[in-house]
Design a protein around this nucleic acid. Sequence first.
DNA 1: CGTGCTTCTATAAGTGCGTGATACAAATTG
DNA 2: CAATTTGTATCACGCACTTATAGAAGCACG
Lengths: 142, 142
Amino acid sequence: MPLSSPPALDAVRLSTAVERLFSLLRRELPPNDISLTAASTLRRLELEGPRRLTELAAAEGVTQPAMTQLAQRLERDGLAERAPDATDGRVVLVRVTDAGRDLLARRRAVRAAHLSALLSRLSADDEALIAAALPALERLAP
Amino acid sequence: MPLSSPPALDAVRLSTAVERLFSLLRRELPPNDISLTAASTLRRLELEGPRRLTELAAAEGVTQPAMTQLAQRLERDGLAERAPDATDGRVVLVRVTDAGRDLLARRRAVRAAHLSALLSRLSADDEALIAAALPALERLAP
DNA sequence: CGTGCTTCTATAAGTGCGTGATACAAATTG
DNA sequence: CAATTTGTATCACGCACTTATAGAAGCACG
């Protein structure tokens, strides 16, 4: 038996833990929060700048009609804007608005606060272990 | 500056990593998967045994009508059963069926497989760090 | 024993969010 | 310029949630 065998990381346990943690964080968001896809799309637009509809749909793993409707809702709610592309008349470019950025910031703050509350119940050792693993978790889901 | 100050664990980064990981795992589930609440409810029923509707609604953080409808869908799909309570004529007890347990097992297997694929791209060090933090993560979201 | 309050579940109406199928305009290609 | 491809929108549908409300069963008390 090789000493350098991979650590016994139970994928079922890890995915269960991630799902449970996510559910807890999600439950504490303001009651009328935007959808997962909406949040992820806004975050992507904030990070990567204006993108076309089909590009967003593919990146978020939803169909093009779903992204068309999501963009319409985001625009209606003032969180994103839609503009034609100068070089291709078929294209609709979507970009996040200041209100959208504000919403993202508030969401992050709320979730961080709730997560901090959860963390405060952990031992310093546990917190240190999680802190040590955070970069690896970020590399896991790039 | 105290040497025993808590480790610098950025709650925003951790919650973002959890959300991204969750989204990745979720996207790879079979196209017609059950909802998050449905999966969580089935898991709870599997773990805790038959429960009444209001109890489930409170535990899952949804309204009672939402749980009534979810129970109806679960029953229609053969994943759960509804039965009257012998001692209280108002109560409906919900319990998971064998088909429900099978579905949960398949979901876990699919997710674990996908997560393993993600993990295989990490270094052994990163994997070890995550493995070391897993018990702490489980304590974080009990 | 009723009468009224509480508890538990169901129903109704509305919205958000996704799907597949399809339509249509703009770009590209021959 | 005709045919095809590409990008978006629309339609019809179903699931999953909400609030408001109804209605039946249990319970407390005169």
